[in-house]
Structure formats: structure tokens, C-alpha cells
Computed example of a mutant assay.
Amino acid sequence: MRVVFSFRAALAPLVGALLAFVPLSAGANEGAATFSDAARIVSIGGSITEIVYALGEGSRLVARDSTSNYPEEALKLPDVGYMRQLSPEGVLSVNPSGILAIHGSGPQAAVDVLKKSSVPYIEVPEHFTHQGILEKIRLVGKALGVDAKAEKLAAETDAKLTAAEKQTASIKERKRVLFVLSTQGGKILAAGGDTAADGIIKLAGAVNAVEGSSGYKTMSDEAIVTARPDVILTMKGGGPQISADELFANPAIASTPAGADRKFISMWGGYLLGFGPRTADAIHDLAVSLYGAQVTD
């Protein structure tokens, strides 16, 4: 079931990459860290929805955004649209008692309308790090009034993340990874620093081949060659799929170590870049894909 509403001109969709980095700022409704009524919550952001279900509080949700496609049970909820193209009318149409959103939801005009509505709006910061995941878990638990459950889940997740990161501790030669978000118009849009892709690459014991810039950037042929990636990483789902043949047909990529060896990894976007309860597993899977038998248990 999908809730669809047209945008007014003032609420035009935010233009940008699917997972573009958004600078962090203070949360909405500062001081309102706990919903007074958490019985009917709209969850915006795939990792937020995953955490709600991991806490055993999925029954509180009355709607979710289109990036919230895990667990499967979440797909039964009404879909209020893509997290960066929200309609206030759509979100409020399900009569929520609270809105729980990841920072970076938008467009800003729509978020401003939601913040000014009578429905409490709690914003959860996004940090693409081990500690950032634990913070999200604790803040979601606080918002729902289940702090004890959140501490238990945070402790379990912390242990799994620590174990996953240790699997590549002994590797000496770190792979240089180029995460390609899109190839629209023949241009390579790749992940720099301060992005989910940068975070997961580092947690898996590798090096982001794009150095010295933040966010997702269009790369020139010269920049791609200079980056010298050993591996090309892409994501499945969330838009047009990028094939290995398409990438390695690019002359600049073909001239890199990744192109010479045709090293290509593709993983589901929400799993790879979600930074939620499943991230330890994503770290392990990416590390195995990068290093094979060198990954220790």
C-alpha cells in the first residue's frame, strides 16, 4: 500500500544523489528525545526502521519510507515515499503520533512543515562509524521509551562490529576501493569522504580510493586513473544497476588495477550502506569479497 501525493512547487524534490552526504546538525524538536505517545510512529530511513524492528517494537509503526525495505514485515506498511522527497500531506495522512526520521530527510521545505505540525518530530543523527550505529540504536530506543532494550541491542551490536573489524586487523596490503554510485551520461559519480560508502570501506579494512574530497563527486578520467583502485564497488537496488561490463568498458577504469584484473563487487544498497543492526554482517561480507582467505574468524 503506497500513499501518494503531488508536491507543491515549494516542496519540489531535493536534487542530488541517492545517498548524498548531508552535513550533520542539531536534531529537530531539541529536547524532545522521547515521544509522549509512541503508539503510531512513521519511520523515515531504512536503518531507523530496522532498529525499531530489532528492538521488537515494529507494532508501533504505522508507515515507513521507501528506503525501509527490511525486514520483510516492513513492506506491509504504507509507503510515504522516498526519504529525500517527502510530502508533508503524505506523512501526516496516516495520523501518526510521532515522526522518527534520520537526519538528511527532505526536502528541507517539507521537513520544516512537518516540524511545525502538531505531530512530534524526532531527528536521529547519522554518523558512518561504529559508534554512530550505537548512537542511533540508543536514540531510537530513547524516542520509543525502551532504553533498556536499546542498551541490550547496542551491546550486542557493539560486540559484533568489534569482531567484524578485527577480521582484517592482520592484513598488511590494504585494497584501494572505488565506490561508484552511478555512471549517468558516461560520468563516474564516486564516493569521497564523509559518506556511507567511505565508512563501510574503512570498516572492512580497505582504503577509499577517492582522497581529499567529501561527498559524492563526478570524477574526471584523470582523477580515476590517479585514484588507482584495486576494486570497484557498487550497490544493487535503489536505481539503475551498474554492470561490470559497463564499468570496465570505461577507458579510465580499464587502465586501473581494478580494470586490469576486472575486480568488481556489488552488494545490496540498504545492507551495505545502511549502518544499522546488520552492518557487522555487511562488513564481514565485504571483507571476504575483498580479501578472501586472509579474513580471519
Rank of each mutant, 00 (worst) to 15 (best):
N250E: 02
M235P: 00
S118T: 15
H103T: 06
I253S: 01
Y271P: 02
D198C: 10
L178S: 06
A206I: 03
Y53D: 04
I137L: 11
A109F: 10
I137S: 11
T234P: 04
G259S: 09
G259L: 05
V288K: 09
V146H: 10
S97K: 15
V111I: 11
T129E: 04
V119I: 08
S93E: 15
L290Q: 03
S266W: 03
I133N: 07
E165S: 05
S117E: 04
A20W: 00
F5D: 14
A10M: 13
E50K: 14
G270H: 12
S289N: 11
D198G: 01
L114A: 04
F128H: 14
K236I: 06
P96M: 08
P13K: 10
P71E: 02
L153F: 13
D221W: 08
F128D: 01
R8I: 02
W268G: 09
S118N: 14
I253Q: 00
L233A: 04
R8G: 14
I171S: 03
V231W: 02
R228C: 01
Q108I: 02
L86P: 05
A26P: 02
I200R: 13
E151G: 08
A74S: 08
G186D: 09
R60Q: 12
K152E: 15
T195M: 07
R60F: 10
L181H: 00
R84K: 12
F21P: 07
H103G: 01
S97F: 05
A150N: 15
V111S: 10
S47A: 15
L18V: 09
F21W: 07
P251C: 07
P71W: 01
D281M: 13
S220Y: 05
L203T: 06
A258M: 05
I122D: 12
K172L: 06
E211A: 10
N208S: 03
T256D: 03
A12R: 14
R60M: 09
A223I: 04
